[in-house]
Computed example of a mutant assay.
Amino acid sequence: MIPSPMRAPARRAGSAGFTLIEVMVVLVIMGVMATSLSIGLDSLRGRDADQALKRLRLVLEATADRAVVRGRPIALELLSDGYRFSALDPDDNWRPLNDPPVFTEKALPAGLAWGGLRLGGSSETGATRLQFGVETPEYELRVTTPGGEARLTGKATGEVQLQMPGRTAS
């Protein structure tokens, strides 16, 4: 039998390929997922900053307590991208204090930066060292965050109050 020229080629069952609508649906789903992932990462960054500030508040309180209990000064040194601790040894030399998990050098999360440290009743905010001893100093440590400026206020009792933009926590 001679094939007719008018006959269309037979389509194989299960041939590979996608329709235009299937491709568009997949692209829309990928776009929605990418958007939700981006929004989720932004909220995690904000949560990281909040957690870092709360941790810093607790670390400052622990530093004041430790200095009083040990009877030896401990200093918090503000670095450009984080902070570290030093302790005064028996020979009156400042030595790095590395006592995990609290007294280790820490980096500030992205979006946080030091806004200034004011000691006692001073109006100057350029100090880079906060020294704790038998008596706990009064101070105000400002930290710039993506949402505004946070303040950590240290009292003579060793308590530290954290004021974050738009809310207050102790």
Rank of each mutant, 00 (worst) to 15 (best):
L88H: 06
E22H: 10
S80V: 12
P73M: 12
L53Y: 00
D91Y: 08
Y83G: 03
S86W: 09
V32K: 03
R47Y: 05
P100S: 05
P90W: 05
G46F: 04
E22D: 09
L27K: 03
D81P: 02
R66H: 14
M24P: 00
E61D: 01
T104D: 05
R84D: 15
S86F: 13
F103M: 12
R66E: 15
L79E: 14
R84C: 12
L41M: 10
E22A: 05
L60G: 05
E77D: 12
D89Q: 11
V26H: 01
T104G: 00
D89F: 11
L76N: 07
P73G: 11
N98T: 14
F85A: 11
P96W: 08
G31L: 10
V59G: 02
L44Q: 09
R45Q: 09
G82N: 06
L37T: 13
A87M: 14
I29L: 14
D48G: 00
L76R: 12
D99N: 14
V25M: 13
V28A: 15
V32P: 07
L60R: 05
P101V: 07
L78Y: 06
L44S: 12
P101W: 12
L79H: 08
S43N: 06
S38H: 02
I74M: 09
Q51W: 03
A34G: 07
L27E: 07
R47T: 01
T104K: 08
R70M: 11
A64T: 09
D92F: 08
M30T: 08
I39S: 07
L44V: 09
I74V: 14
V102R: 15
G31H: 06
A49F: 00
T104L: 12
D92Y: 12
T63M: 06
M30L: 14
R95F: 10
E61S: 11
G71W: 02
V59P: 04
L78E: 04
A49S: 08
S36H: 01
S86C: 05
A52H: 03
A34H: 01
D92V: 06
R95L: 14
M24I: 07
E61W: 04
V28P: 04
A67E: 09
S80N: 13
V26L: 04
V68I: 12
Q51Y: 03
M24N: 01
V68S: 10
Q51F: 05
V28Q: 03
L41H: 07
W94T: 09
A52C: 03
G31I: 03
V28T: 14
P73Q: 07
D91R: 15
L97N: 10
L27A: 10
D92Q: 08
L56H: 01
A34V: 02
A75G: 10
M33T: 13
D99L: 15
T35E: 05
V69H: 11
P90S: 07
P100F: 07
A49H: 11
D81W: 03
V25W: 02
D65I: 06
E77R: 15
